[in-house]
Computed example of a mutant assay.
Amino acid sequence: MRVKITAYESPHYFVDEMLEGSFKFMKHKHEFKVSGKDTIMIDTFSFSSPLGILGRIVDDLILKKYMTKFLLERNEMIKEFAESEKWKQIL
């Protein structure tokens, strides 16, 4: 999958969109908001599968649940790295 950052306003948000890949389209907005001493990350993820009505059925029956679970697990891992010394392993 090829993805490109299409919007960026540091430190508030960035948007990446799929240029090539399995989906008909995919757009992922990552927003960061300060709340006291905490930073809150808000993901807005939109996508559509190819194949018309068949793709929409797959989206509704399978992919929405799968992608939600995937993003929640990914965000937990990001939180774990950001709130510990683990971030040093990847930078």
Rank of each mutant, 00 (worst) to 15 (best):
M1L: 01
M1Y: 05
M1A: 12
M1T: 08
M1Q: 10
V3K: 04
I5T: 12
A7I: 09
Y8Q: 00
Y8M: 12
Y8P: 09
E9G: 05
S10V: 01
S10W: 02
P11T: 04
H12R: 12
H12K: 12
Y13R: 06
F14L: 13
V15N: 07
E17K: 12
M18S: 04
M18V: 08
E20W: 09
E20D: 12
G21L: 03
F23W: 10
F23S: 02
K24S: 06
F25T: 05
F25Q: 11
F25A: 01
F25V: 06
F25E: 05
M26V: 09
M26N: 09
M26P: 08
M26K: 09
K27T: 02
K27G: 08
H28F: 05
H28W: 02
H28D: 12
H28N: 05
K29R: 13
K29T: 02
H30K: 04
E31A: 10
F32A: 08
F32S: 04
K33E: 12
V34G: 07
G36W: 01
G36Q: 01
K37S: 14
K37H: 11
K37D: 14
K37P: 02
D38A: 15
M41H: 10
M41V: 15
I42C: 00
I42P: 03
I42D: 00
I42F: 03
D43K: 01
D43M: 05
D43W: 01
D43H: 03
D43T: 05
T44M: 07
F45Y: 11
S46L: 00
F47L: 07
S48K: 15
S49W: 11
S49L: 15
S49F: 15
S49P: 03
S49Y: 06
P50V: 08
L51Q: 10
G52P: 11
G52S: 03
G52T: 02
I53N: 10
I53Q: 11
L54Y: 10
G55W: 07
G55I: 12
G55F: 07
R56H: 15
R56W: 14
I57A: 14
V58A: 13
V58I: 15
D60P: 01
D60N: 13
D60Q: 14
L61G: 01
I62C: 03
L63P: 05
L63Y: 13
K64E: 03
K65Q: 13
K65H: 14
K65N: 15
Y66D: 04
Y66S: 13
Y66H: 10
T68Q: 13
K69L: 15
F70T: 03
F70H: 06
L71M: 14
L71C: 01
L71A: 05
L72N: 14
E73L: 10
E73M: 11
R74G: 03
R74N: 06
R74F: 05
N75E: 11
N75S: 13
N75K: 04
N75A: 11
E76F: 09
M77S: 01
M77Q: 03
I78N: 04
K79R: 12
E80V: 00
E80R: 12
E80S: 14
E80F: 04
E80G: 06
F81H: 00
F81K: 00
F81Y: 13
A82M: 11
A82H: 06
A82W: 02
E83M: 09
E83C: 09
E85G: 14
E85S: 13
K86C: 02
W87C: 07
K88A: 08
Q89D: 15
Q89P: 09
I90C: 08
I90F: 11
I90V: 14
I90H: 02
I90G: 10
L91S: 04
L91H: 05
